[in-house]
Structures are given as C-alpha cells and as structure tokens.
C-alpha cells in the first residue's frame, strides 16, 4: 500500500523516500524514580550528572532497571538526605569487588561463567563487568574494541587477543548474519520464524557456554559446536532464498506471458483498422 502510494508519488514527480514506520518505543516507565533523575540531571558537577543521560540510552532503562537497583536508596524522595539514607539501603558507588554479584542478580549465566574464569580468579575481579560493559550506558562488550592493547594489552599479548577475537567473532558473526537474513527475508513473505529461532538458539548457546568463560581451550570446541548448530539454519536460509527467487521467476514468466498476450491483442487491433 505504501509502495503503491510511492508509485503514485513518483508519477507526479515528487522524489520521496520510502515510508518507514519508526519502530515502537517500548512503554517504559521511569523506573529510576523521578527523584534521582530530577536532581542529578541538573547538578553542575559533570561527574554527578553524566550518569543520567547515559542511563537514559541504556538497555537498563528499557528493561526497567533503575538507579536504586544498583545504588539503593529511596528513588522517589526529592530530599537529598532521605534519598541517600543508608537505612533505605543506599550504598553509593558499589565496591568493585561486589560488582559481579551485583550484576549477577539478573545476569546469572554470565556471573556463573565469569566468577570461576581467569578474570574472576586473578586478584579481585580484573576486569569486572563495568570495565567492559561501562557503568550507566550498559553497552554490549565489543570484543574487537575492548581487546585492543590499550585495554587488554596490559596483561595479554596481541597474538592471544587476536586468537580470542577470532573465536568470539567466528561465532557471533554468523549468528548476526542469520538474524539479518531472517529480517531481510521476512517482508518477502517466506517462512523465517524457524531461521530466527535457530539463530536465537545459537546465541543462547553462545551466551551460556562461550561468553565470559575466558579459557581458550574450553571455548574453542564449544564455539565449534555452536557453529555446527548453525548449519541447519544456513540450509534453511538458502531454501528461503531459493523460494523467493522461485516466486520471482514465476512472476516474471507469468508477466511475460501476459505481455505476449497483450502484444497479440495489439496486433489484432491493428488488423481491425485495415
């Protein structure tokens, strides 16, 4: 319908980009509580206010995880002393050694992999969750980005980092490609739910067996088994693509036939005027 409209618009000669309905904004409340956000957003000291915009972009806002879930206190209160009352559970900046358990309240799989891992056992959690995922913005850890010598190179050689990157991206890239293929094929009207589900399953396997383990020898075979599970997804993607091109061929043949029929009618009409 939008495309037809587009055709209409093209006909009257107005260049116009295809209509794109914006994705729906999730109906997130303000879980941080008006108190924290109102005061901290307006504080002069940037160290004290920068958390607000960072959190507002974060997946935690969407998921309804607010300030008090990590910092404690009374988020609804507009009085500084009440909001920051230790009796209300206020802890301020969490102790770095407590961070993995703090995040692990929800991210259990990650915690369970991380705590016995080399990063969890060397010293007191080096690096910990927020070192790689940032504190308030809560971003996915980009392996390529954080594994630069600047961040990881203090302890690891470039070779090790490259190898590690290779394993991680070797799994995540095909998963992302499968998700993308499903998303691209969906509007074409071919069944893609099983492709999407297969990719999700692979991602979940990655999350449980590969991510946050940090032991090279352990994750290599696991990563391979995740990749093996994507084989069927790949076959399905190829089948779906074939289906789309079959439909197109069918359409072209049928359209060609109609045009030929129209051509004959045209010829026939010409004989009428003779």
């Amino acid at each position: 319908m939008k495309r037809l409209l587009w055709l209409l618009v093209c006909l009257v000669g107005v260049p116009l980009l295809p209509v794109r309905v914006m994705s729906a904004e999730p109906p997130a409340a303000q879980p941080g509580g008006s108190g924290c956000l109102t005061c901290h957003a307006s504080l002069e000291d940037e160290e004290m206010s920068k958390a607000v915009p960072a959190w507002q972009q974060s997946v935690h806002k969407t998921a309804g995880i607010g300030c008090q879930d990590c910092h404690g206190g009374s988020p609804k209160s507009m009085v500084k002393e009440q909001a920051h009352d230790p009796n209300a559970g206020y802890i301020g900046i969490p102790d770095p050694t407590a961070v993995p358990e703090q995040c692990g309240k929800c991210h259990q799989v990650q915690r369970d992999n991380y705590i016995p891992s080399p990063h969890g056992t060397v010293g007191e959690f080096i690096p910990n969750c927020v070192d790689c995922h940032s504190d308030h913005k809560v971003v996915p850890a980009d392996v390529v980005k954080i594994s630069t010598p600047k961040r990881c190179g203090d302890c690891h050689t470039d070779d090790i980092l490259d190898q590690f990157n290779g394993v991680i991206t070797g799994v995540l890239t095909p998963i992302a490609q499968a998700k993308q293929a499903a998303a691209d094929l969906r509007p074409a009207g071919v069944p893609v739910d099983h492709i999407d589900a297969g990719a999700d399953l692979a991602r979940e396997m990655f999350r449980q067996k590969v991510s946050h383990v940090f032991v090279f020898q352990t994750i290599v075979p696991r990563a391979d088994s995740v990749k093996a599970s994507l084989k069927k997804v790949d076959t399905d993607i190829r089948a779906a693509r074939t289906e789309v091109s079959t439909r197109r061929k069918f359409g072209i043949v049928a359209a060609g036939f109609l045009v030929i029929l129209a051509g004959f009618i045209w010829l026939y009409r010409r004989t009428l005027s003779e």
Binding site: F257, L258, I260, L261, F264, I265, L267, Y268, T271
Partner: peptide, 12 residues
C-alpha cells in the same frame, strides 16, 4: 491472430 489469441487465452 484470432486463433492465436484463442489459443493463448486458453493456455492462460
């Protein structure tokens, strides 16, 4: 042409 049209229509 009439015959062609007839045949094509039938095929269609």
């Amino acid at each position: 042409l009439e015959r062609c049209l007839g045949a094509l229509s039938a095929a269609g």
